[in-house]
């Protein structure tokens, strides 16, 4: 057995012991052999309530006509089905163009699930399928979603889509399927690995750098500092949902 493996075993046993001692949870299930445990690495700690994931979008840097973020989202999340009626297609993230009819000033910005602190979609969901993780990421549990679309009625940002057809081209890490409702997950599968969402990465790769992702609760993070310095806007702030996605420049 190699050195790193050995380390990870000790890590796991340590974590298991802490878990068992601290929480009183049986860490080792019946029928589970210690020799096999040694081959697994420790599971992650999970979402922490100390963290509040958020995004800051600088609309002054976002270019009208650029859809690098949308493309990256579709690739990452396997959104590739084609529907006869485009209004039935899923859109986790979309580009919106704004124009002030008085001043003529125009803005372009990406819009997606705002990961509300008080999400109406979660409040109205009859089965609890719409849920918010401890770190503020709002998800749909497709195991319990019955496809009633009540959350779509409740979301003020039109962030949710209903899957109108059978899917077979999913990415293994992003399950999605017919008859359930879905929305932007902040690329939770990447965030849990310590990466940033695909759209943010794509925006940086396109050299626009209009999107910033990070922990709003961590005062040392770039996003928290920018939010403290510049004037940011929450879309439909009147609803007091304390959203996780903030905009700058509108």
């Amino acid at each position: 057995m190699t050195e790193p493996n050995d380390k990870s075993r000790r890590g796991f046993l340590g974590a298991a012991a802490v878990g068992a001692a601290g929480l009183g949870v049986a860490a080792i299930a019946p029928g589970l052999h210690l020799i096999e445990v040694s081959q697994a690495s420790a599971p992650s700690q999970g979402a922490s309530s100390k963290v509040r994931w958020g995004m800051l979008i600088d609309t002054t840097k976002c270019a009208s006509g650029c859809d690098a973020c949308v493309k990256a989202c579709n690739t990452e999340n396997g959104i590739n089905e084609v529907l006869k009626d485009p209004r039935q297609a899923s859109q986790w993230i979309r580009k919106i163009d704004l124009k002030d009819p008085k001043s003529g000033i125009a803005h372009s910005l990406p819009m997606m699930c705002q990961h509300c602190e008080h999400p109406p979609c979660v409040d109205v969901c009859p089965t609890g399928a719409s849920m918010k993780r401890a770190d503020g990421i709002v998800l749909v549990d497709r195991h319990t979603c019955i496809g009633c679309r009540y959350c779509m009625l409740a979301c003020p940002y039109k962030a949710r889509s209903f899957v109108h057809m059978t899917l077979t081209e999913q990415n293994p890490e992003v399950p999605r399927g017919q008859g359930c409702v879905e929305s932007c997950t902040f690329c939770v599968q990447r965030v849990d690995k310590g990466q940033i969402p695909a759209c943010v990465e794509a925006c940086a790769n396109a050299e626009h750098n209009a999107m910033l992702f990070g922990d709003l609760n961590d005062l040392n993070s770039a996003i928290a500092q920018r939010v403290a310095q510049v004037k940011t806007t929450q879309v439909r702030a009147d609803l007091k949902l304390n959203v996780g996605v903030r905009y700058q420049g509108i």
Binding site: D67, V70, K71, A72, C73, N74, T75, E76, N77, G78, I79, N80, V82, A89, Q91, R94, R142, T166, L167, E169, Q170, N171, P172, P175, R176, G177, Q178, G179, C180
Partner: peptide, 17 residues
């Protein structure tokens, strides 16, 4: 399998919206 990809290591491609 209505939601999960049953193929190992599958890489789905995105499309232009």
């Amino acid at each position: 399998w209505q939601c999960h990809q049953p193929k190992a290591g599958y890489k789905a491609a995105g499309i232009k919206p």
